[in-house]
């Protein structure tokens, strides 16, 4: 099971992913995230992973795919709230080189320069 909720803050969409991100849930995750950034005025995505309990390598493609879309708009994707297990996936896959990890929502928003 995977639940995705979101709130828009200016040109940034803040997404909360709760549950498990694997091959089975990755398809709906991809669709939900693509719908959120369908609006071209959205430049950045901040993903709250504090309620994501499990992720395997199927999740890597989901993040890289959305990162590419936002990069083409000169936007950014950042994450926060990773548990130890998901941090390990981030590390071994090299995701941390393209999708920065922040400590909190505030720090993430600073990271994408959305704080007024």
């Amino acid at each position: 099971m995977l639940d995705i909720s979101s709130v828009r803050k200016g040109k940034t969409v803040v997404v909360c992913m709760a549950g498990e991100l694997d091959h089975h849930t990755s398809e709906s995750a991809r669709e939900s995230l693509d719908n959120l950034i369908e609006d071209n005025s959205i430049k950045n995505m901040v993903v709250d992973l504090s309620e994501l309990k499990f992720m395997d390598s199927s999740g890597i493609g989901v993040f890289i795919g959305r990162y590419k879309i936002l990069s083409e708009r000169a936007g950014k994707m950042v994450v926060f709230g990773l548990n130890n297990h998901i941090s390990k996936i981030w590390e071994i896959s090299g995701l941390y080189k393209i999708i920065a990890i922040y400590e909190s929502l505030d720090a993430s928003l600073h990271g994408v320069q959305e704080v007024e």
Partner: peptide, 12 residues
Amino acid sequence: ERSGMGFTVMET
């Protein structure tokens, strides 16, 4: 959008 990291994850 497969990452090709499955076996690497298993080995890690």
